[in-house]
Write a protein that binds this DNA or RNA. Structure first.
Lengths: 126, 126
DNA sequence: GAGGAGTTGTAAAAGTTTTGTAAAAGGTGT
DNA sequence: ACACCTTTTACAAAACTTTTACAACTCCTC
């Protein structure tokens, strides 16, 4: 019987209607076109995407992308977020959300609904 | 049943609209004209071509073409890449891509499509 | 709802690292 | 010795990252 490496690696890819990250090859595509991300930009996006839907604190981002323990007084992170947003073009607002005083959150693409469904009526959390 | 040597040797040739590598005879042609490559130039090109579409790290190139373990501080690789590019003429940009901080990638020639096809519409992987 | 402290956004400059290039030096085989 | 190939060197250019300085924004309190 064959071996399935896919079973070993947890998630090796993120994919939605517009964005496509390949964590193995460290590449990203936006509407099929390769996004030309620098290493830091990719690391940043990847970390956010891997925690899609959840807030990632500035601390965590600095820690895991930069290796800084803490105490940053420069705008390095913000500058990188900015460039990421730029490369995400019109989708930037939809994908990357600023959580004031805490960090950022990547929000996976939600296809627009054509019809109202029951879950639209309950007041949702978060 | 007969034996098919083709089944043993993975690919013994690369061919696209402009470039043609014969891995058996270690020769290359560009638009039918033989490219006069030196051994190192050929080895380098062959390795890249055999990994067409994928990044080959500097390390891997140095390792497999030069046999260096690691730790190179000279520009040997770059110089060879340069001469290769020169010999690829106008196609150089299209074929050999620099992946900053990582290595190089040979990108196979993609003929321009004249008409849209079904596969353009589905969101594809890779 | 105005003011203020603190946080994030932005543009540009400065800094760092990596790659490209030209020329010279070093080898190799005939 | 000659022709050819490869490596080294030294520097230029390009790509990427960080810093700086300030503007804009958010949240909180009065």
């Amino acid at each position: 019987m064959g071996t399935f490496s896919a079973a070993i690696i947890p998630t090796e890819r993120y994919q939605d209607a517009h964005l496509d990250l390949d964590f193995q090859h460290k590449t990203a595509r936006l509407d099929l076109a390769p996004m030309r991300l620098t290493r830091k930009e990719y690391d940043l996006l990847a970390l956010l995407v891997q925690n899609a839907g959840e807030i990632v604190t500035r601390e965590a981002l600095l820690m895991r992308v930069w290796g800084y323990s803490t105490q940053i007084k420069t705008r390095t992170l913000d500058v990188h977020i900015r460039r990421l947003r730029k490369k995400l073009g019109d989708y930037a607002d939809q994908y990357i959300e600023t959580i004031f005083g805490i960090g950022y959150r990547f929000q996976p693409y939600r296809p627009p609904r054509l019809f109202r469904v029951a879950s639209d009526l309950v007041s949702v959390g978060a």
